[in-house]
Simulated scan of single mutants.
Amino acid sequence: MRIIHAKNYDDMSRKAANIISAQVILKPDSVLGLATGTTPIGAYQQLIAWHQKGDVSFAEVSTYNLDEYRGLKHDEPQSYHYFMNEQFFSSIDIKPAHTHVPDGSNPDAEAACAEYDRLVEAAGYPDLQLLGIGNNGHIGFNEPDSVFSKGTHCVDLTESTIEANSRLFNSPDEVPRQAYTMGVQTIMQARSILVIASGSNKAQAVFDMCKGPVTPACPASILQLHPHAIVVADEDALSLF
């Protein structure tokens, strides 16, 4: 696992965007696995700026997002489908048909997850998977558990994750209690993985991911076993190293 030190959030975002843009420039039809949340926004903004300057095109790229809240339709402002359009897709030249997010509006969890697994497998899995990391070490919505998850599945969100994500809702009570998420095994199929982290509240999770035992109690720790995993984190997130 390669660790890249960044000075702060802006530096982390630029360094992450550099890695993503290099992937797309070298392989214009790249399959990208993407993440939501506040951490990747800076990287998306940097990629948008470079696209608008003509430095990078996403016209041939296809994307597969990690997760979606169960019970939210695509056009609901708190959905991850809506988030990706607002924060990234609507400002670049990617084809809408080439963007994919689990269908949170499908109440049949088994069918929704099986269909998303089929789509990701048919795409050949991501060339580059972007990940954030939760305060409890989760990746996607794969929460701490006794085993590592496999394919896309429906997960009950922990209270810490609900609280962390409540900033995007009017109150924690409005946060859905379940989500559809790519499994750890699916994430590990990506040819390269980029994890980004910022802030002292992520310090313990980043340390456990990189230096702790490989255990489903910290789902991100399995990335130690990936042959091409890069962590870009700022000084606060790396403060325990």
Rank of each mutant, 00 (worst) to 15 (best):
E86F: 05
D127L: 06
N142H: 09
E76G: 00
L240S: 02
D67Q: 10
Q46I: 08
A164Q: 13
D29P: 00
G54V: 11
L72F: 08
H100T: 07
T161K: 08
N65Q: 09
Y80I: 09
A123Q: 09
A43K: 04
L238D: 07
D234I: 10
G137P: 01
K95S: 13
A22Q: 13
I222F: 04
D127S: 05
Y44R: 03
P216I: 11
A97W: 01
H5F: 08
Q178G: 03
P227W: 08
E110D: 13
Y9L: 11
F58E: 07
I25A: 12
A122D: 14
T181E: 05
N136I: 07
T63C: 14
T36N: 09
A220L: 07
I222M: 05
D103L: 12
D67K: 09
P216S: 14
R191V: 10
K27S: 11
E163F: 10
I4L: 14
A97G: 12
V147K: 13
V232N: 03
Q78P: 01
D145P: 02
S192N: 06
P216M: 12
T38C: 00
E60A: 14
Q23M: 15
A197M: 05
V175C: 07
D108E: 11
L72N: 11
E60W: 01
P28Y: 04
I19Y: 03
V61C: 12
Y180M: 11
N142E: 07
Y82K: 13
T152I: 09
D11K: 10
A229F: 14
E235C: 00
Q224P: 08
V56L: 07
G42R: 02
N142R: 04
Q52R: 15
E110P: 00
L225M: 13
D145Y: 03
G71W: 03
N135S: 14
Q52G: 04
I19E: 02
S105Q: 13
I196H: 03
